[in-house]
């Protein structure tokens, strides 16, 4: 009876099922079937054997990943960079959105918003070109300016200590417009009656921002932060790769899980190591998202992602 009902439904929804088929096939082929490849993390890969024929080597790949110190270094870098990006980018975007909302005529707002949005539209390769233009030792603009003030030029591409700051600035620069527009939309949707009430109560502009605007942004901030925290172990490969590339001198300060996985696969061709690091990242990421979602669910069911 139940089976009968199932096939009846298949017939009933045949058109919809057919329309879903391409996307289902796509995600089966490029997301679900590759999950089987997780076994590669526990294998000594060779090209003759392939995914299924290569011999097992237990936890050797993962053990080596941890014992070499790479695991700790890339995990720490990935998490710390993402935390810095989340905090600084959000604060800057909220700051810019509030200012844009409060000051300026229509034209000032329109033009500056467009200009702030500009970096969002260019590729990370172009960002890499800009970085090269600014930071190059011999001809970079930063050193040109330093020399102009009679100071010694600095060798940025060979000094890891500068890079946490540079990467935070680059991330803030590229994301500023996108985030500002999003927060601006959230501010614009705040009920104007709340502002009028604040006005009648004699609140000045600073009080109005602290007591009306910012509290009303909490839901947006919380959702965006949660999404970002869930992805805290996913490095932005495009940024790190185009800013640093294969410059090993900087890896101590800049290597993240994604660049490590990529290099193991493409540069050193160590399939087992790359797969192990990839699985490690996936499991860590999955656990983080579940944990974050569980915490939010407990606190406020409506805010949970799922």
């Amino acid at each position: 009876m139940n089976r009968h009902g199932f096939w009846n439904d298949v017939v009933k929804y045949r058109a919809i099922l057919l329309m879903l088929a391409p996307a289902v096939l796509f995600f089966l082929l490029f997301a679900y079937v590759p999950m089987v490849g997780i076994i590669l993390a526990f294998k000594q890969y060779n090209y003759a054997g392939g995914v299924f024929g290569s011999p097992w080597n237990g936890l050797d790949n993962i053990r080596f990943f941890f014992e070499s110190g790479d695991a700790w270094r890339v995990t720490r870098n990935t998490a710390l960079y993402n935390i810095a990006f989340i905090v600084i980018n959000n604060l800057l975007q909220i700051f810019a959105a509030i200012l844009l909302f409060e000051v300026g005529g229509k034209w000032f707002r329109k033009i500056t918003q467009s200009v702030l949005f500009l970096p969002y539209f260019i590729s990370w390769v172009v960002v890499g070109a800009i970085a090269y233009n600014l930071l190059n030792y011999d001809i970079g603009t930063v050193n040109v300016i330093l020399k102009g003030f009679g100071m010694e030029p600095i060798d940025i591409y060979n000094t890891p200590a500068y890079w946490p700051y540079i990467l935070v600035i680059v991330s803030a620069w590229k994301g500023l417009g996108y985030g500002t527009v999003m927060y601006l939309a959230a501010i614009t949707s705040i009920d104007t009656e709340m502002y009028e009430a604040a006005e009648i109560d004699g609140a000045n502009i600073f009080q109005r921002i602290m007591k009306v605007t910012i509290p009303n942004l909490y839901p947006t901030v919380i959702i965006l932060t949660l999404l970002a925290v869930g992805n805290i172990f996913r490095g932005d490969f495009g940024m790190f790769y185009n800013m640093i590339g294969n410059n090993g001198i900087l890896f101590s300060a800049t290597d993240v899980i994604d660049t490590f996985v990529f290099r193991s696969l493409i540069t050193s061709n160590d399939i087992g190591m790359s797969a192990a690091a990839g699985v490690y990242q996936s499991v860590l990421g999955f656990a983080t998202i579940m944990l974050v979602n569980y915490a939010v669910r407990k606190h406020d069911k409506d805010r949970a992602l799922f």
Partner: peptide, 8 residues
């Protein structure tokens, strides 16, 4: 939420 990673 979950993937097999880059290699597979």
């Amino acid at each position: 939420l979950f993937s097999g990673g880059l290699v597979p």
